[in-house]
Every structure is written in structure tokens, then in C-alpha cells.
């Protein structure tokens, strides 16, 4: 259908300016995974229920399967690939998930970490109830959530103890 135009978008992903021409119907998650080859962001249910596709925009968690790429034009997006520091050291949340065994198959982990990063930006010392409320939009089929809660609590204490918030890694595809 030639009459349907593509739209040019320019956004910042993990600190790096990126551009693309997309059909208006292209979801942000497809743009990230297929055009930018940032496949750390997962597609689970593709119906905005499971949260595996969670990324942050200006620090706020969103489900990238339910946002058009054109809606993200001009946005500052962070994906799981942008969490580690430029020197490769892990973000406090990645450390927490590793230390507390907050994953089994790992499919939900990128989304869990990005949702948790939204929480820790708003609340440096969340209770277990607040952690569980914050990951309500993220489904895990392996862990029963218990170790995920421990992992996020561990990350919060690492941040409070002075773990530096890493600068976004530059990714060049």
C-alpha cells in the first residue's frame, strides 16, 4: 500500500542518538529488537500483560510492545543493554539479581530489571510490599517472585551503600 508513508524518527537509546524510518504501526519493541538489533528487550505475551518488553523512557518504565515507535520519537530510551557501566561493570540491579539468584530461565529478567529501575529512582528504600507492587506488571513463570524481591531489595541496599549509578553504555550496532 504505497500511499502509507513511513515516518522518520530520531531518539536516544542508551545514550546514543539513533534514527530510523518506520511504518507508523511499528511498535517500539520491534524497532529496538529488529532495527537496532538490541535483542535484550524481550517479547513475551505481546499483549501488554507480561512486562518482558519493559524499557524506560526518561527513567519511567513502559511496555515497548504497547508503544508505537513514532510515539518514542525524540525520547530518551534505556534498555537492558544500557544498564551496565561503560567499563562493563554491572548495575546494582544486575548485581542484585546475580547475587540473590533472582532468575531461572532469565526470559523475564530484562523487563524485571527495567521495571525495578523505575522503582529505585522513586524510592531508594522500598519495602517488600512496595517491590511486589512495582513489579505487578511483570510476569515470571519460574521463580515464584521470592528471589526477585530479594534481588531488588539487595540492589536498593547496594545503591544506598554508594554503588555508583552507571552512565549509559554506548551501543553501536
Amino acid at each position: 500500500m504505497a500511499e502509507h508513508m513511513t515516518e522518520h524518527i530520531a531518539l536516544v537509546v542508551n545514550g546514543t542518538p539513533r534514527e530510523g524510518d518506520v511504518e507508523p504501526r511499528r511498535m517500539l519493541v520491534q524497532f529496538l529488537r529488529e532495527d537496532l538489533e538490541l535483542t535484550g528487550t524481550h517479547v513475551g505475551c505481546d499483549t501488554s500483560q507480561c512486562g518482558a518488553c519493559t524499557v524506560t523512557i526518561d527513567g519511567m518504565a513502559i511496555k515497548s510492545c504497547t508503544m508505537l515507535a513514532v510515539q518514542a520519537d525524540g525520547a530518551n530510551v534505556k534498555t537492558i543493554e544500557g544498564m551496565q557501566a561503560a567499563d562493563g561493570s554491572l548495575h546494582a540491579l544486575q548485581e542484585g539479581f546475580w547475587a540473590k539468584h533472582g532468575l531461572q530461565c532469565g526470559f523475564c529478567t530484562p523487563g524485571m530489571i527495567m521495571a525495578a529501575s523505575d522503582l529505585l529512582a522513586r524510592n531508594a528504600d522500598p519495602t517488600d510490599d512496595e517491590i511486589r507492587h512495582a513489579i505487578e506488571g511483570n510476569i515470571c513463570r519460574c521463580t515464584g517472585y521470592h528471589n526477585i524481591v530479594l534481588a531488588i531489595r539487595e540492589a536498593a541496599s547496594l545503591v544506598r551503600a554508594g554503588a555508583s549509578a552507571p552512565t549509559p553504555t554506548s551501543i553501536t550496532a
Binding site: S48, G51, T54, M60, A61, I62, K63, T66, M67, A115, D118, L119, H133, A134, E136, G137, N138
Partner: peptide, 11 residues
């Protein structure tokens, strides 16, 4: 606080 989830409330 109970409408949708945090990702939905952000959008």
C-alpha cells in the same frame, strides 16, 4: 495505585 500496573500508569 491499583489502576493497571506501573508501566500502564506511566503512559
Amino acid at each position: 495505585p491499583d489502576i493497571g500496573d506501573v508501566q500502564v500508569r506511566n503512559r
